[in-house]
Simulated assay, not measured.
Amino acid sequence: MLLKLAAEGRLVMDAADADAVLSGLRRTLLIGHTRLADAAVARGAGPAGFTADALGQKVIDLSVAELTEPGRPRYVLDELSKCVEALSLVTKLSGFGDHFV
């Protein structure tokens, strides 16, 4: 929905707020993708890959989430990527000074 609003020029955000939001979303995406990659490596190592010494608790939690709802963590990251894309589009389409429209 954000991507549609951005493409239609109906998403309005202060430039400083947009920069802060984009920065936070990109950081969150990086962390999420890193944890998914760590969980994949741990799965490849078998049960020993899931010890507290081998992985942080958040990666273990993510692995459990993947087991209980397969594909959900990846789906969430894909949706978050769409938010980043929408806000990036807003910044590119904007020609209104301190506001993104």
Rank of each mutant, 00 (worst) to 15 (best):
K58M: 11
I60S: 08
L11E: 03
L22G: 04
L11R: 00
A16L: 06
F96E: 11
L89F: 10
F96D: 12
G95D: 14
T34E: 06
R27Y: 04
A18F: 01
L3A: 11
T51I: 10
A65F: 08
G24P: 00
R10V: 03
A54H: 09
R26L: 01
L29D: 05
V101P: 12
A6L: 02
L93F: 06
G44T: 08
R43C: 04
R35C: 01
L87S: 01
A18K: 11
L11P: 07
T68D: 12
K82W: 04
L55K: 04
T34Y: 02
A65L: 14
F50K: 03
K82C: 04
V90R: 05
V84I: 13
L77C: 09
G49H: 06
L3D: 08
L25S: 00
S81T: 14
L22N: 04
T91S: 14
D38F: 03
T91H: 01
H99R: 13
R43K: 12
G56V: 03
V76R: 11
F100M: 09
L67Q: 13
A48C: 03
V12T: 08
C83Q: 10
E79Q: 14
L55E: 05
K4I: 09
D17H: 08
F50W: 13
I31F: 02
A37E: 11
V21Q: 05
L29C: 03
S63I: 01
S94I: 06
E69Q: 15
A16C: 02
S23C: 13
F100L: 13
D61W: 01
Q57G: 10
H99A: 09
L93I: 07
L36T: 06
V21Y: 03
R72A: 07
V84P: 05
A86S: 02
C83L: 08
S88G: 15
A39M: 00
A16R: 13
A86I: 01
E79C: 12
L5K: 14
V84C: 04
S94Y: 06
A54S: 13
V21M: 11
A40V: 09
V64Q: 10
G71Y: 06
L2K: 08
S94R: 14
G46W: 10
A54E: 11
R74S: 07
S23I: 01
P47W: 00
A52W: 05
V101F: 07
R27I: 05
C83W: 07
R72T: 03
P73A: 04
G46M: 06
D78K: 09
V101G: 10
Y75A: 12
E69F: 14
L62S: 02
R72S: 05
T34K: 07
A6P: 05
A45N: 12
M1A: 15
D17N: 08
K58N: 12
D14M: 02
L36M: 15
I31M: 05
L3C: 02
L25Y: 09
G44K: 11
T51E: 07
A16W: 05
K92H: 14
S23V: 01
G95I: 08
L55P: 04
L62Y: 02
L22T: 03
D98R: 14
G49L: 10
L89R: 08
L62E: 04
R74P: 00
L30G: 07
S94N: 12
V84L: 03
P47M: 01
K92D: 11
